[in-house]
Design a protein around this nucleic acid. Structure first.
Length: 596
DNA sequence: GAGGTAGTTGTCTTA
DNA sequence: ATAAGACAACTACCT
């Protein structure tokens, strides 16, 4: 474009995440020297249309709770825009098809949207950019979802994202301050929108969802609500400066132990930079405060850590082809997966958490740890990607980078390797909630179970079960696996898989190596499963697969494990449920275990 | 480059 | 009660 007279800008401000007016650099840019700003959100039926075949109410990929949160956020955004004399323009369709049309019809010469690191968004945005380049439309894509630009952190680290938190933090400078919003004026879109079909923010019912009155998430979407929550969280300065994530109570549900701002960060209803700067202001007023990684500041930096890793790692959301992910022969067991997903594992703590996840769309971080560990390396040995999908569907705050990163962490596939540290589905939550209030709240069937049995109801005598109106196996399921056996087997499998990964995969393994590895491991796993059955029946614990021994010598069965004998399960799962009396205290090191 | 160190959040027992 | 130690053990990063 030849210079000279300033061309009046007709901007589309394309909202995707970043559903806010405050600290929104793309919005600022769209308003600069603009005659008209078209605040746009594209409702993509691909993500919003109901899918009756999905495992829970929602669309193909997204549960209703998050859809509702999005709709509320859009309603709030529209209200805020209206208060500034503008409005949100909602258009239905696939953005890649819709945007070129709008650019044409509205004579747009500038498009602004927030930079998005997710692969899906990268691909979509690249297509849009190319279209704009062809038509001479300016494109601005500032970074404002995260505190830092992942590209810069990766560059500083020699082209690769750091794989440890400490190393990551060492690469960081000070994040940019939030923008000053006081002076921003948003020029309204023109009255004539040509023949573009603009729709009001739909309700869930408009989208085709019905009967969803009960059990909705307690989190209401939107910038207004998010900022309110930010203020409430930061108002308690003592709490803020003493915050230590691992000390939080994952069973607290009347008043959760964290800020619960995650859904607002996920959708960008609240700016991470705003929260961060406000947080530092609180720190500045207090004598001392906790530090990363456990502090509130540390939580913000974890988010940055995973965003950076997710941006800089190929196939971050998969095991195969992902250079930082251990190749592990996880099980593709639909039955175990659905027991876990639907809160039917027979372990009340795990099931209560899964039910909270479904109802609230939110869990405390440690509850996420517990259920993720249980599904993968702790007990069920099911693919982390399967669990990731369930979380991604149900969590209101589901965030691609954080969700995948944390699943790899918890499954000891990347970032974390101490696979012997396994959360107990029985004792972990007990130390926070010895009475089992959390369980009783989320699992009504167990509400009258005495607290002595609440974490292990299958150990309650039948008379007690009758008294509590809860017969185990009828009113509440028997455990799908015996934790004592299952977690031992998982550790053995992890040991074998780790050994093979070390042997076979220096750097990124080729597809062929991965296949070979998985075949070996699967063969090993099957042999082991057979042996396990035999072992359970005969007390012969010797390993019979010589070629692929884990480095760890497998222990022989402890005597108590066969007490009571394996009971039959409906599922036919290889692990037997715990015998009626599993309450045998762990034995001290016994000489005969050493044998060999 | 070899070796040492430290790592957000395990469990159980003992002091 | 809380804290420390044992358990068994991995690896990215740094020196």
């Amino acid at each position: 474009m030849a210079g000279g007279a300033k061309v009046e800008k007709r901007s589309i401000m394309w909202f995707r995440k970043g559903l806010r007016l405050h600290d929104n650099p793309a919005l600022h840019k769209s308003c600069q020297d603009a005659s008209h700003v078209f605040p746009l959100f594209v409702l993509d039926p691909f993500f919003l249309a109901p899918d009756p075949t999905a495992p829970s109410p929602g669309s193909r990929t997204v549960g209703v709770n998050r859809i509702q949160f999005l709709l509320e956020s859009l309603r709030d955004l529209n209200a805020s825009l209206e208060s500034r004399g503008s409005k949100l323009l909602l258009v239905q369709g696939n953005p890649v098809e819709v945007l070129p049309e709008l650019i044409e019809k509205w004579s747009i010469n500038r498009l602004c949207f927030e930079f998005d690191t997710e692969p899906y968004a990268q691909d979509r945005d690249q297509q849009i950019k190319e279209i704009c380049d062809h038509r001479g439309v300016e494109v601005h894509t500032p970074v404002s979802h995260t505190l830092f630009d992942p590209r810069e952190v990766i560059a500083k680290n020699g082209g690769k994202p750091p794989l440890t938190y400490q190393a990551f933090c060492r690469k960081l400078g000070n994040p940019p301050k939030p923008l000053d919003d006081a002076t921003v004026k948003v020029p309204a879109p023109p009255g004539d929108l040509k023949d573009v079909k603009v729709v009001p923010v739909p309700s869930l019912e408009d989208l085709g969802y019905v009967d969803l009155k009960e059990d909705f998430t307690p989190f209401r979407g939107g910038e207004t609500e998010g900022l309110k929550r930010l203020e409430e969280s930061l108002a308690n300065k003592k709490w803020v400066s003493e915050f230590e994530k691992p000390k939080g109570d994952p069973t607290a549900f009347l008043k959760p132990a964290t800020t619960c701002l995650s859904p607002y960060f996920k959708f960008g209803c609240v700016s991470a930079r705003l929260f961060y700067s406000r947080l530092l202001a609180v720190y500045a007023e207090s004598k001392k405060h906790t530090q990363p990684p456990v502090s509130l500041e540390g939580q913000m930096l974890w988010r940055e850590f995973f965003y950076t890793a997710g941006y800089g790692t190929p196939n971050f959301d998969r095991m195969v082809g992902n250079p930082i992910c251990k190749q592990i022969p996880w099980k593709d067991d639909e039955n175990l997966l659905s027991c876990w997903r639907d809160g039917r594992t027979g372990y009340p703590w795990i099931d209560a958490a899964m039910i909270q996840l479904r109802k609230w769309g939110w869990l405390h971080h440690l509850a996420r740890h517990a259920v993720a560990c249980f599904l993968t390396r702790g007990d069920l040995f099911v693919y982390w990607e399967k669990g990731r999908d369930v979380f991604d569907r149900l969590l209101v705050d589901s965030d691609w980078a954080l969700n995948n990163g944390n699943w790899m962490w918890l499954s000891a596939s990347a970032f974390f390797a101490q696979y012997h540290r396994i959360y107990s589905p029985i004792t972990f939550a007990k130390k926070y909630d010895p009475d089992g209030k959390y369980i009783k709240h989320f699992i009504p069937a167990l509400k009258d179970m005495p607290k002595a049995y609440i974490y292990e109801p299958w150990t309650a005598p039948l008379s007690v079960q009758k008294q509590a109106n809860c017969i185990i196996g009828k009113d509440y399921p028997k455990p799908v696996v015996d934790h004592a056996i299952a977690n031992k087997k998982c550790r053995d499998r992890m040991g074998a898989a780790y050994a093979l990964n070390k042997q076979a995969a220096p750097g990124q393994p080729t597809q062929e190596q991965v296949n070979t590895l998985n075949n070996k491991l699967t063969a090993n796993l099957e042999g082991e499963a057979d042996e396990q059955d035999v072992a359970a029946a005969t007390d012969s614990g010797e390993d019979s697969s010589p070629s692929l021994k884990p480095k760890v010598k497998r222990q022989r069965k402890l005597p108590f494990q066969k007490k009571g004998g394996p009971a039959a399960t409906e599922s036919g799962e290889e692990n037997s449920p715990p015998s009626p009396k599993p309450k045998v205290t762990r034995q001290r090191k016994l000489p005969f275990q050493k044998k060999g």
